[in-house]
Structures are given as structure tokens and as C-alpha cells.
Computed example of a mutant assay.
Amino acid sequence: MAAVPIWARLRRGASSVPVSFLIYLLLMWGLVEVALKGAEAMGYNWQWYRVPKYFFSAGPEGITLGEIPWGLVGTITLSTLAFVLALGIGLLIALMRLSDLIIGRAVARVFLEIVRNMPLLVLLYVFYYVFGPIFGLDRYTASVLCLAVFHGALISEIFRGGINAVAKGQWEAANSIGMTTPQIYRYIILPQSIKFMLPPMTGEVVNMIKSSAIVSVIAVVELTTVGRNIISDTYLSFEIWFTIAAVYMAVTMLISIFASYLERRYAVQD
């Protein structure tokens, strides 16, 4: 039996779960250490004891949730609404690009080129300051539509890639038994394309959660806006931003873990 090269054993060891977790902890420790050294050089006075009350407070009436949990609820609500709408937009644009209609393909291409080449902040300003007065959109509706349109353009490519990944023989078999195009998509193509779309779609969910922070520039109430308001009242810049970052990371990690579970479940079914 041939000996395993030393570089192969090192690579295998470095890719193991314990080693990966250790590397992650070392990186996090390094980042925290740099932040602490920087704050120490600035003469910053840490006041972590003031942070818990922004999560909850206990009083005669029981436990009351603080600003940060309510901000997280706002972020999740905003992201969920925008993502559901983005799924519809993305599917529509993907079907238009895959259709035989020249006009449909042209409209989808123009939409994608405009949205993908425009910074999200600029797009938000367009929806709020331009479309808002014209169509009577409030800041919350403008934020949901902006996020939905921006991520809908990205999701459309995920849909298109997943649909194209399904074997052409599936189309031919469905056509041979007289199924219509909508029936083929609904019962044959889209169910089979889920396993191809799940990993990148998870990335879009995480990106949606993170992108929602940009609506703080127009004062929509969500996690980042709450953090900015707390800092303006308390000047606890380091403590609050570290806390907000940790909350975002916890949410996105939970989403990633759930998506990994779904991927394994689909793999078992296959």
C-alpha cells in the first residue's frame, strides 16, 4: 500500500472540523485582540455592564424586552417580506429569460443590467426619494421594494441556473405525455431544481439579512438603526457595534445550519 504524501495528510488534517473550528477561534481572538488594543490606545472606557438592559430588563411587571430584540424582529420581518417578494420577481425574470419571446428576454436583460450595475445604496435612494413621492411610498415600503428588486435580480440567476441544471430529457418526457409548459415547470422542473438552488439561495438569504442594514440610512426601524440610536444616546460605540455584529452573526449562522440540514435531507432522498 502506497504511503500517503505528507502534504495530503496536512491538507486532510487542516480541513477537519476540529482544526477548522480552532482556526476560526484563533481568527476571532485576533480580531478581538486588535479591537481591544485599539480601544486601549484611544483611552476608551469599556462599559459592558450597560449592554444587557438593551436586551431585556426585569421589573415588577416581569421581563421586558429591550431595543435590540425588537430591532432584530424588525430586521427579520423586513428581510422576510423582501425575500418573499424577491422570489416572485426572480422567478418571473428567470422565466422571461428562458422564454421564446424576444421581448420577454430583452426586458429581463435590461432589468438585470440596470439593477446589477447599480449600488444598493443608490437604488434605495431612487426608490425612496424618486419613486416614493411619485407613487406615494412610505420609507418602509420603499425599503422592502428596493431590497426585493435588488435581490430579485440575483435570485433570477439562481433560478435560471437551477432550471438549466435539470436534464433536457425531463422536458422531452413531459412534452411526450402532453403536459403544458406551466405544468412542466410546476410538477417536473422546479421540484427537481431545488437541490441545485438550495446552496446559493441560502447565500442570498444571508445577504438579504445583511443588506437590510442599509435601510438605516432612511431611518427604517431595524437592528442597525436601533444600534445607531443607542450609540447616539450612550456613546457606547464599541460595545453596541460588537453586540449588533454578534447578533447578525448568530442569525446568519442559524440560517446556514438549517440550510445544511435541508441539503443533507435532499441528498438522502436522492
Rank of each mutant, 00 (worst) to 15 (best):
residue 3 A to N: 12
residue 5 P to Y: 02
residue 7 W to E: 15
residue 7 W to K: 15
residue 9 R to K: 14
residue 11 R to Q: 11
residue 13 G to D: 10
residue 13 G to L: 09
residue 14 A to S: 12
residue 17 V to Q: 04
residue 20 S to K: 14
residue 21 F to Q: 12
residue 25 L to T: 13
residue 28 M to Y: 03
residue 29 W to K: 13
residue 30 G to T: 11
residue 37 K to Q: 13
residue 42 M to I: 03
residue 42 M to V: 04
residue 43 G to Y: 01
residue 46 W to T: 10
residue 47 Q to Y: 00
residue 49 Y to L: 10
residue 52 P to R: 13
residue 53 K to F: 00
residue 58 A to V: 13
residue 59 G to K: 10
residue 61 E to I: 01
residue 64 T to S: 14
residue 69 P to K: 11
residue 70 W to P: 08
residue 72 L to E: 02
residue 72 L to Y: 04
residue 72 L to W: 00
residue 74 G to M: 03
residue 75 T to K: 06
residue 78 L to V: 00
residue 82 A to M: 10
residue 83 F to E: 07
residue 89 I to D: 06
residue 90 G to C: 02
residue 91 L to T: 07
residue 92 L to A: 12
residue 94 A to Q: 08
residue 96 M to P: 11
residue 97 R to Q: 10
residue 98 L to I: 00
residue 105 R to E: 07
residue 106 A to T: 15
residue 107 V to Y: 00
residue 108 A to G: 06
residue 114 I to D: 12
residue 117 N to D: 10
residue 117 N to P: 03
residue 120 L to D: 10
residue 124 L to Q: 10
residue 132 G to N: 09
residue 137 L to D: 05
residue 138 D to R: 10
residue 141 T to W: 03
residue 142 A to S: 14
residue 142 A to D: 08
residue 146 C to S: 15
residue 147 L to C: 03
residue 150 F to P: 06
residue 152 G to R: 05
residue 153 A to S: 15
residue 158 I to N: 13
residue 160 R to S: 02
residue 160 R to V: 01
residue 162 G to R: 11
residue 162 G to V: 03
residue 163 I to L: 14
residue 164 N to V: 07
residue 167 A to W: 00
residue 169 G to R: 06
residue 174 A to K: 08
residue 181 T to D: 06
residue 182 P to T: 01
residue 183 Q to G: 11
residue 185 Y to E: 01
residue 187 Y to P: 11
residue 188 I to K: 05
residue 188 I to R: 01
residue 192 Q to P: 08
residue 193 S to V: 07
residue 196 F to R: 12
residue 199 P to E: 12
residue 201 M to A: 14
residue 201 M to T: 15
residue 202 T to Y: 02
residue 202 T to R: 09
residue 203 G to H: 05
residue 210 K to V: 07
residue 214 I to Y: 03
residue 215 V to H: 04
residue 217 V to T: 15
residue 218 I to W: 06
residue 220 V to H: 07
residue 220 V to F: 01
residue 220 V to I: 03
residue 221 V to L: 08
residue 222 E to H: 06
residue 222 E to T: 05
residue 224 T to D: 05
residue 225 T to A: 09
residue 227 G to S: 09
residue 229 N to A: 12
residue 230 I to R: 07
residue 230 I to S: 08
residue 230 I to V: 09
residue 232 S to P: 00
residue 235 Y to R: 04
residue 239 E to H: 03
residue 241 W to K: 03
residue 243 T to L: 06
residue 243 T to A: 10
residue 245 A to N: 02
residue 251 V to F: 02
residue 252 T to E: 09
residue 253 M to P: 01
residue 256 S to T: 15
residue 259 A to C: 09
residue 259 A to T: 03
residue 260 S to Q: 15
residue 260 S to R: 13
residue 261 Y to H: 05
residue 264 R to T: 09
residue 265 R to E: 03
residue 267 A to K: 14
residue 270 D to I: 00
